[in-house]
Design a protein around this nucleic acid. Sequence first.
RNA 1: GGGUCGUUAGCUCAGUCGGUAGAGCACCGGCCUUUUAAGCCGGGGGCCGCAGGUUCGAUUCCUGCACGACCCA
Length: 489
Amino acid sequence: MPEQELIAARKEKLARLRARGINPYPYSFSRTHTAAELRQAFGHLNPATHTGQGVAVAGRIMALRRMGRATFADLHDRSGKIQIFLTPQTLGPEAYAFWVEHLDLGDLVGVRGEVFTTRTGELSVAAQELVLLAKALRPLPEKWHGLRDVETRYRERALDFLANPQSREILIKRALILRTIRNYLDERGFIEVETPILQPIPGGASARPFVTHHNELDRDLYLRIAPELYLKRLLVGGLERVYEIGRNFRNEGISSEHNPEFTALEAYEAYTDYQGMMELAEGLIEACVLAVAGAPHLEYQGRMINFSRPWRRVPLLELVAEASGCDVEKPLPELLVELDRKGIPVPEHLRRGPKGKVIEHLLETCAEKDLWDPTFVLDYPLDISPLAKRKRDRPDLTERFELYIAGREVANAFSELNDPEEQRERFLAQERLRAQGDEEAQRIDEDFLRDLELGMPPAGGIGIGIDRLTMILTNSPSIREVLAFPLLR
RNA sequence: GGGUCGUUAGCUCAGUCGGUAGAGCACCGGCCUUUUAAGCCGGGGGCCGCAGGUUCGAUUCCUGCACGACCCA
């Protein structure tokens, strides 16, 4: 039947309800138990037991079994489901006939009645009173396959969540992960802060920003690509341990691993360095894995991930040299010759350098996929790490790591650069790249530099992609599964 | 950006070697007082993603486009 006719049929029922003086969208309903609480309290009953105990439950009707003068309904709430039993004896003949005619799958109802078990042992509520709490006007998806079509699942999220418990479960686990992160950091003296999302200069990462406009100031502002620079300014201000969990915005492509707005954790700790950040990452993510999986390992897309500490630590250059079979210590022109000879493709726009971008490209194309168990990739080239301190014994590298899990970049961290003069030089180098056409090059932020000149304590900082972490911990193949409302074309 | 596959009823899916399409669930009507994927009888429901082309005839073949999935860059 065309959808419009199904909706029209329900609207007709709705009109008849209103005509009878029933408010199909009332204000509230006091329930005494959720479905799970009922099972908790009465789950031990023998078949065909009448308790004499009155309860009130509420939820969505997800199944209706009409048997003439008796009807069973499955009521789903946030905790699970409970069966409702309707008969003329308990509900009254007139009310029974009326509701059996006017209830539809998907309607939200409240039911007051006695707890009992059927002769097959199903815990049920025998309705003495039924209250319509919201009439549903649209048909539900198929009752045992649910809603499968991924496009509809992503475009009509409410429908997906009400039809597919697994979809809801991911959001519940996401909340658990966020709660675990906050607890972990709060217990260690970190202060949760909120920094600007509307920024005059988008800083703290290499990415293209979204632009917006403030009418009163008549000035363009950018949605942040990262909170990094503001959080470091709080270190200057003496906060010492700060973190922010919030949305970043990057004006880039959409894929199974990228959404234009995504949630990141950034944490900064004074008087430590990137070694400290590795320990923080291990502890924090281990706590999340234990909270979600109850063990330090879990399966992702058919393959186990072992989170046992300590995690592997491997220098980037070593990793890339081994994966590509090239001598990556060579200057860029010679490296390109070797890569060409070996048939390893390098996109044209990277060939002019800086060399760090080629190294990064090799990591992405040759090595990343195999980094399955958590792996810290260490010591990134200086020219692609403008906010990180130089490595102590290698001035062309920085004390920076990325954490890879299941072949995905999950975190990025540095020993934070706090020398204001060197930071200015690094920004100027980025400006030169921008002048050569690199739209992702970072920009000079004078407010940040001024605050650095006040003295920022040595510090370690880390950013963790919450969506990707949640994907891994919920065995989700696409970022869309872990977002309540992913952006679609 | 390139390749492969997909798009059929509200949902889940069949199918048409080119002759205007089926099932189950859902919906509507009937029977039914312990079902739980309830059952039985009957009924209605389709721009076969969109636009062109080939053809007497296209949902089916071809081209393009849109959207999606996967792979590659």
